[in-house]
Structures are given as C-alpha cells and as structure tokens.
Design a protein around this nucleic acid. Structure first.
Lengths: 148, 148
DNA sequence: ATTGTTAATGGAAGTCATTTTCAATAAGGA
DNA sequence: TCCTTATTGAAAATGACTTCCATTAACAAT
C-alpha cells in the first residue's frame, strides 16, 4: 500500500488485464476504505478523485478484481453486492453479521469448533446428496448497535 | 390438502386477508409443488389452471403468504427469491444446498451439534458486537448432482 | 339475498441494480 | 512510433420486482 508494495498490480497483469488509469483509481479507493462497499459507494468515492470514471467501468473493474482474486464480493441479500479488498490472497475463514436496516456488514472470525462443524457437514452433504459443495456461507442477519 | 384440512384458509382470514380466487389458485399450486419456486415459476404454473392471473398478484400473494407464516421466502443469492409452502407452522431448523448452475435448492436437516454451535456463536456476537442477531443462515453453494 | 364498503386485482408504467452495445480511446507489445 | 486489441463511458437494455390506478369482487351489514 506504500512504497513498492502494490502486489495486486503484478497480479492484475498476470491475469492478462491491462493496468489503466480508471482501474488504478478504483483500486486506490478500495484499498484505502475499510468497510464493505457497494458499486455505487465505489463510484461516488472514485468520482471525487477521478470524475471521468463511468459507473459501467466501476462494475467491470470490480468484477475483474474479483476474478483476479484481489477483491471479495459479498451478497448482502438486499439486492446490492458489496466489495472488499483482501488483506492477503488467502483470507482466513470468517462469517458475516448483516444489518437488515443499514446494510452494514461486520466480519466476524470463525471459531474453530464451528468451522470444523461446518466442514464436517459439508463433507456429509457431498456424500449424501452428491452435491459438490464449493463454499459454505454463514450469515447472521439482524440489527447493528446503532440500528436496533 | 384433502377434505377439510385447509389450515391455511383460517390462518389467512385470521390475519385479516380475504380469501379470493386468485389466492386460492396460487396456494393450490404452491401446495402441490414440492420444490422451491420462484415468483415466475408460480406465475407460469398458476397461469395454466387460471389464465386470468397477473404477475403482480402472484408477487403480492406470495408476500401475503409469507406475512401469514404459511410460506417461507428464500433468497437464493441469484436475484430471484424462492418460495416454499411450509409443511407445519413451526419449521424444524435446516440449511440449504444451493446449486450455482441451475439454482435448485435442497433442504438439509441441521445436525444437532452444528445447530448448537451456531446458536452459541450467535449469543457471542450479540454480546461482543452488540449486534442483535435475528436469524442465522447457513448455505452451501456448489453444484448439484446433475450440474457438476 | 341485496347492498355498500373496502380490499384485491391486473395491466401498464416505474424502480433500481446491473449488463450490454457500440463507437471512441488508450495500453503496451512489435 | 505504430498497430492491434483491450478498455472506456454514455446510452440503451435487462430482469426482478413494485407502484399506480381504475375496475372488480369479498364479505359484513342490512
């Protein structure tokens, strides 16, 4: 994030994508924000530092970053996807608390026991239903401190 | 479903809703289908036995049935909600296997251990993040037998 | 059974997030 | 520098719903 540490630049090029100005601006915004942003959020923030950006490009770039493994996309269940920059390429497993009022998402660490249980269930479903489970997702819908 | 067993009729009236022909036709379809149907699915099926039905009415009736506690609405994460008739008013806890290709949803029974762990996590998040958890949802995204 | 009030209906038009189209532009290898 | 081809952004399209509104039909009261 500082100095020469733009690991994601190499990754983007490595995936065959070009490094363009709008893309760098979008990355800059994602990298310096710490919540889970909607495409609209990103668009507004990028627009402030690079007004020429189009909403279309924001959507396309976000998908590109997800495809490159740099950004995670989270379906909040309210019809608006959220995006978040990964701190590291391999994220540690975690769950989400999703506020039904303001839409805010809180990452919560997975406790070992629960994590193990989910994994066991997954294995069982693969066998029992011949259903190839890719990724289990545990979310807790409710109301955050300021909304309840 | 046969004889006098329309428990839901009383429930609908009890919630202050009128029992109309389109509603009964929609209920008939839901009641005789066993998968998780999208609003469009319901519309198509109802249209076959009652062509006058409008898509608007299907949406409205489905919401009404959810509000009455007769039907459950499931967000499959693909932008299309699914609806399913409850067998009993109080459904036993279960999770969902969701096929990323065909969108099919399989209900899987919650194993006691896992169920207990999720409950424990929920209690912890309530305390730790002051987040009032309403309902935890565990989904396993992947590919069903015929899609993988 | 008839009436009157009011909820329910359905077609058309509107939202809203996201995607597609397409002509113009700009990366970056040759 | 040139040239190919990915990328861009504005506008239009999409798709799942929702809202509007004039018409219809439940059903409570007569």
């Amino acid at each position: 994030m500082r100095g020469h540490g733009r690991w994601f630049h190499g990754r983007i090029r490595g995936c065959g994508y070009r490094l363009t100005l709008p893309r760098m601006k979008i990355i800059e915004v994602l990298n310096s924000s710490n919540g889970h942003l909607s495409a609209e959020d990103v668009f507004v923030k990028v627009h402030r530092i690079y007004p020429a950006v189009g909403l279309t490009t924001v959507y396309r770039t976000l998908e590109m970053l997800v495809a490159s493994g740099i950004v995670v996309k989270i379906d909040a269940g309210d019809g608006k996807a959220r995006y978040k920059f990964k701190k590291t390429l391999e994220e540690e497993p975690h769950f989400h608390l999703i506020c039904k009022k303001c839409g805010n998402i809180i990452d919560v660490k997975a406790d070992k026991e629960l994590e193990k249980n989910i994994h066991r269930a997954k294995e069982e479903y693969i066998k029992r239903y011949r259903f190839k489970v890719d990724n289990p997702q545990l979310r807790f819908y409710g109301y955050c401190e300021s909304c309840k």
